[in-house]
Write a protein that binds this DNA or RNA. Sequence first.
DNA 1: GTATGTACCTGCGGGC
DNA 2: TGCCCGCAGGTACATA
Length: 271
Amino acid sequence: MPELPEVETIVRGLQGLVGRRIADVEVRWERTVAVPDVETFVRRLQGRRIEEIKRRGKWVVIRLDGDLFLLIHLRMSGRLVVGRGNPAEDRHLRVALALDDGSRLFFFDPRKFGRMALVEDPGRVVEGLGPEPLDEGFTVEQLRDRLAGRRARLKPLLLDQRVVAGLGNIYADEVLWRAGLHPLRRADRLTEEEVARLHRAIREVLEEAIAGRGTTLEDGQYVGADGQPGDFAPRLAVYRRAGQPCPRCGTPIQRARVGGRGTHFCPRCQT
DNA sequence: GTATGTACCTGCGGGC
DNA sequence: TGCCCGCAGGTACATA
């Protein structure tokens, strides 16, 4: 599943498209386009120049000329891949952008959860997102303030994009393991030192995962914009490792459902 | 505010 | 081999 490190890797891999113009747009699954209606989406995209490609949370934000923004969320199974000609396998192709140099940007999405939005004000789409965890402005104090008074469990809070933007199920589990915190801990019961550990773990895990170009599981679901898988999966400590020894203390990793989500943790060193 | 459930979807693995 | 079932999960939304 694409989370912050995967989306960051994709965005880095798309930088070669800056300066290109969108020559043509093909929408094969209409519900991929959240706003506006498909006809308007296609018409307004045609001829636009790609000015900038960046990331906000798990959103890919493409700034176009004419004060227009194309926002893309990959959700569960979305892939953005640059190619030429027709894709070898197009059963899951939902949207294709043909560019003026002959290359194409493909959006594949087997589960059809991914969404695109073409808007004048990207803030409208991403305004509810919490801070970017890798920005300098994301401090221990900021995290402490966001957790203060929250009686909810840590795991669902880390998945809440309004608290911190970019974490998903994989990295939430990894972050909690790194911080030595149990996924069921109440946020308002953390000590100052534990909040600092959590803050450090969020940044370390995400930075290391970006350095590894993201996590590609056995299903091969995630690939970068160049079609290459990420290298981080072998470095996962707990995610989908139930029964295997904790890398820190050797205790078998446990799996439980927390807030309806598969959650992996070490019952001994996460307290 | 918090917890839980449902919908959106398809692919996959398990059980028979 | 083929069928059915349940599960996986990010987000929005509804309900308790």
